[in-house]
Amino acid sequence: MNRKEYNNSVDLYADGLYRFMLKSIGNENDAQDIVQDVFLKLWEKIDTVNAEKVKSYLFTAAYRTMLDRIKKMKPLSTETVAYTEPNHHEQYSDAGEILNKAVNNLPEKQRSAIRLRDYEGYSYQEIGEILKMKESQVKITIFRARKTLKNYIGSLEVLI
C-alpha cells in the first residue's frame, strides 16, 4: 500500500468508520479518537497492509480498539455514570429514532453485526472477520437481532 492508496482509504472509509464507532459508543470524541488511532496504525503498517483488504483491516482494528476502551471504561462508568430511569413520556421524533433505541438495547454482537450489515453493506463473511465469528454465527446473530427489533417495533405499534 502506498501513500496515495492510504489517502484514498481516508476518503473512502473514514466516514463509515466514524459512523460505526459513533453509533457503537455514542460519544463523538471517543469515536474520533478511535478513528484517528486506527488510521495512525494503518500508516505505521502501510507496507504490510494490502490495499484491497484495507477496509476490513480498518473496521477490525476499530472494533478491537472500541472493545478495549469499553473494557477500560467499564469500572469507571459504574461509579460515575448515574442510571436514569426510562422516561415513559419520552417523545420519539421518528421511526428511525425508535429503531436506534431498540438497537442500543441489543446484545453487543448483534448490535455491531446489524450495523455493519446495514450501514456498511458487509457480507456475512466480512462481518465474521471483523467480529471474529463464523459466517453461520453471523447469520444467526443477525437473524436474532432482526427478530428482536421486529418484535419491539410490533409491540410499540400495538401500544400506539
Binding site: D15, Y18, Q36, R146
Partner: peptide, 26 residues
Amino acid sequence: QEQNNYRKTILTKPNVTFPKKSKLKK
C-alpha cells in the same frame, strides 16, 4: 404486517462525516 415490521428493522445510514479527515491524510 410482520413483513412490514421486518422491513423497518433495516437501519438507515446516518448522515455522519468524519470532521478531521484532512488531518488524517499524509
